[in-house]
Amino acid sequence: MQLKHRLVLPLALVLSAVMLYPVAFSFWISLHDYRLTRLDDVRWVGFENYKFIATDPGFLNAMGNTITFVIGAVTLELILGLGLAILLQRLVRFQNFIRSTLLAPMFITPIAVGLMFRFLLNSELGVISHYLGEIGITVDWFGPQLALFSIILIDVWQWTPFMVLMFLAGLESLPKSPFEAARIDGASAWLTFRCVTLPMLRPVITVAIIIRALDAFKVFEYVFAITRGGPGDATETIMYYIYQAGFRFFRMGEAAAAAFMLIAVILVLVIALVKATKSSTAGRNNV
């Protein structure tokens, strides 16, 4: 066998075992009435599970919640991340210290983040709620109206640093001369940002959005740590829905079908995003 194939073989074997085989198995499950409680009675149902899922109000609600969550969280993170990155770049003192501190949240296990905020925002015991109450504001952070929004804020706390990291690196790699030219042309700070910085950053922004959005679709820990999908089903996300279907109600077939539907939605989204930005990134992608 050629060297180039021998080098790849170990990876191919490992990924076949932990990726290809599970995906194929999962697809097979999705075509069956597969219940953990009736393992001796697994029946072929074709695409029945998909039909059921596609019309299940619970699934549609979860998908809606997830999409709201993804759009809300990624948009906020994008804006905050861009702003913070620009400020950090202009920082002349303590830059390393402040940067490392601001990036810290993205490295922490999400379950810890979820539990921390569950306590901080708790309506009776939470510090934040307590002091807001002192100045006359009572907010029911995890009530039916705000719960999903609160989860978004928690995601923003943890993942804005990722955007900062990407944009800061992007900003620092930009050539200096266009900015100097803009200064000589007498462009205002805002005009420079809009017409020089932003267009040059676009490839980085696209990649950051895609990575962050794909990750946000998998949101599970905050929901698991704080609301368990509630109140009612206000914060039930796709991952939590699948977790419930598979491991609370043991309906493996439906859970698998829901997982494949999730992939389909993600795929459509990624293709749309890539298409929307292709022309502007084509020149800078090297692969």
Binding site: V18, P22, V23, M252, L262, V270
Partner: peptide, 17 residues
């Protein structure tokens, strides 16, 4: 693509196997 695979797809087979 593998990096982006949602864990929801893989967890069922892992659990069953």
């Amino acid at each position: 693509a593998a990096e982006m695979m949602p864990p929801a797809i893989l967890i069922l087979p892992f659990f069953l196997v």
